[in-house]
């Protein structure tokens, strides 16, 4: 970013004073907008979330531990993380493929496909859930082909993974696509001139450039999949210990008025999502540094 803000400009008194002196803010509205931002953020996000954390303090450690580590809850973590991991991995592969095809090859209908990639962002999750269920159930378009072969994709763990693949697809495509667009063709030409095969060029020249973006996309798809609820519950079958995801555990506890138990599990999920958010931020910073170093 080359656009210098006024506060970055060295003052007339010389460079050394620049760091120590509080920066002068020339444009109006700083206090108003920052104040409003912090107020609104606190009211909508921070205070409600801290209410969640404080609520867990009303539990003893034993109660908390019992709530978050009962066998049924443990099975749900395993399922949620496992399914999210597989789905994110599939998304890395197909997301890269789709991004590659969209950036590198011209073909008819490309603009429509490009726009369609964002469908999972725009389509309400409940609609996605019932649509996928209708497709994969025994009487659905896909289900009636696969079920006679003994492949069941709905009302079990397979369905969960498929719903999560749907939800996570745009994340990988949209993080990799701009990096592929900016990748310099000269490097590939140089590799070819030096005698590399096309595969070697991909493996040693292109892949390292897009690896940070792929990892970021993976983390984003994974983070989204862990919290996903709407698209999964219709297709999962929701059998305790087998196909019950963690968000559904929270709902179940709430329906039994077990507020303390629901809160405890929710705090575990909140901590995990906060860690993932920090990880994604670090990955994006790494990606920007890599992009800055290469250009």
């Amino acid at each position: 970013m080359t656009a210098a803000t006024l506060s970055e400009l060295p003052p007339a008194s010389g460079r050394k004073a620049q760091r120590k002196r509080p920066t002068r803010r020339v444009l109006p509205g700083f206090n108003l907008t920052l104040g409003y931002t912090i107020l609104y953020l606190s009211l909508i996000v921070l205070i409600p979330l801290s209410a969640l954390v404080f609520k867990t303090f009303t539990l003893s450690w034993e109660q908390f531990w019992a709530a978050v580590s009962s066998p049924r809850v443990m099975a749900s973590y395993q399922l949620t993380f496992g399914a999210s991991f597989i789905a994110a991995l599939v998304n890395v592969f197909f997301g890269l493929l789709v991004a590659w095809v969209l950036v590198r090859y011209p073909f008819p209908g490309k603009k429509v496909i490009d726009a369609l990639v964002d469908l999972p962002f725009a389509l309400p999750t409940a609609v996605a859930g019932i649509a996928l269920t209708a497709l994969l159930a025994g009487n659905g378009w896909v289900g009636q082909v696969l079920e006679p072969q003994g492949i069941k994709l709905a009302f079990n763990r397979n369905g969960i993974v498929i719903a999560l693949i749907f939800i996570g697809l745009p994340f990988v495509v949209r993080t990799v696509q701009p990096v592929l667009e900016d990748a310099e063709k000269e490097l590939e030409e140089a590799a070819t001139c030096l005698g590399a095969t096309r595969w070697q060029t991909f493996r040693y020249v292109i892949f390292p450039t897009i690896a940070p973006a792929l990892l970021t996309g993976f983390a984003m798809a994974f983070a989204r999949a862990i919290g996903e609820y709407g698209s999964v519950i219709f297709i999962a079958g929701n059998m305790p210990m087998i196909s019950e995801i963690t968000p559904l555990i929270i709902i179940g506890k709430l329906e039994q008025y077990d507020y303390a138990g629901a809160t405890a599990v929710a705090v575990v999920m909140l901590v995990i999502s906060f860690v993932l958010l920090l990880l994604i931020n670090a990955l994006q910073a790494w990606q920007r540094r890599r992009a800055g170093a290469s250009s």
Partner: peptide
């Protein structure tokens, strides 16, 4: 964005 919608409702 990274908080599960269910957790958001719960708070």
């Amino acid at each position: 964005f990274s908080v599960s919608p269910v957790v958001a409702g719960l708070v």
